[in-house]
Design a binder for these strands. Structure first.
Length: 285
DNA sequence: TCCTCCGCCGGCAAAAGTGA
DNA sequence: TCACTTTTGCCGGCGGAGGA
């Protein structure tokens, strides 16, 4: 992966780019991120879920992930994806995508016949990888070319096949996921969430686990830990990080963080900041 | 040396999860 | 829905680092 060493805040800013061959059944989510992320499938198959819809994707397809939008994707068991990706943000990012007819309602671009996309991703990656002072400017140029290609493809495209519509249960769980995503920084109780959504705590917990594979509390914990990990490189104290992700008690936060990451918060922070070599610690569970 | 701050650990009660 | 099990949240206590 190549990270933009000279980020410029403005209408569009590239964060990082990369390419990889995924493992069989490689799965991400359900989770969310704070920036835009687009994947271009070079080869293989898999599914992408956003806003309760599931899209079957193969070579030539691109899928867009939006800030604060819960998503999930999984590579095929027999033909896992080989894809490249680009993460970006900026105050005009949403408007630009909207102009290209790309939104959480239409997150897929199908461009199997388009030969320019893969070379543009690779040039963009190579530019970032060089890391020279003008690489940010040059890579943004490639991104604009990429978006122009996406825009042309979208102008005449057919929508990606929707495999299924939301069932009642999916809608209920989707509501719960959104509730947790928005409330994770508050003092959340599953009882209160169930009441506010109008379901029994026990029923909702069971449906939640049935669909996501984890309990609501585990899901909430996952969101909080991922947010906390992002804040570890900031100047906030462990106490402040605990509070900002919804833990009233920093001691309990510390316990949970160690369980999740395999390292105590201060220890993990030292690793992330390069003060302690990672090899000095056993891998997280 | 003492004090304060920050962070971690162990134990317990309450809340949440789960099987019947 | 109930009853049992597991997890979460809180409390007290401890240790290390830094400053007076």
């Amino acid at each position: 992966m190549a990270v933009n060493p000279y980020p410029v805040s403005g209408e569009l800013e590239i964060l990082f780019s990369g390419e990889s061959q995924t493992e069989r059944s490689h799965r991400m989510g359900p989770t969310f991120i704070d920036y835009f992320l687009v994947h271009y499938v070079i080869a293989g198959r898999g599914t992408f879920q956003l806003r309760g819809r599931t899209y079957a994707l193969q070579a030539g397809d691109s899928f867009f992930i939006f800030p604060k939008e819960m998503y999930q994707y999984e590579a095929d068991e027999h033909e896992p994806w080989h894809y490249c990706w680009l993460a970006f943000q900026g105050n005009e990012a949403e408007a630009i995508l909207h102009q290209l007819n790309i939104s959480p309602e239409k997150p897929i671009v199908q461009a199997a016949a388009e030969r320019r996309i893969k070379p543009l991703y690779r040039r963009l990656y190579a530019t970032l990888h060089r890391g020279e002072p003008m690489c940010a400017m040059e890579s943004i140029g490639y991104m604009h070319l990429l978006f122009a290609v996406y825009g042309r493809c979208n102008a005449a495209r057919n929508p990606a096949p929707i495999l299924d519509d939301k069932s009642d249960i999916e809608r209920q769980v989707d509501q719960a996921i959104r509730w947790l995503t928005y409330q994770y920084a508050e003092q959340v109780s599953i009882e209160r969430m169930s009441q506010s959504l109008g379901y029994s705590r026990i029923y909702l917990s069971k449906m939640f686990k049935q669909l996501t594979g984890i309990s609501p509390m585990q899901y909430l914990n996952k969101i909080r830990m991922e947010r906390a990990a992002m804040l570890m490189t900031s100047r906030l104290s462990i106490d402040q990080i605990a509070t900002s992700v919804g833990y009233k008690d920093p001691l309990y936060f510390s316990k949970q963080y160690k369980k999740w990451s395999g390292h105590a918060p201060s220890e993990h922070r030292a690793i992330l900041l390069g003060k302690i070599p990672k090899e000095n610690f056993p891998p997280p569970h």
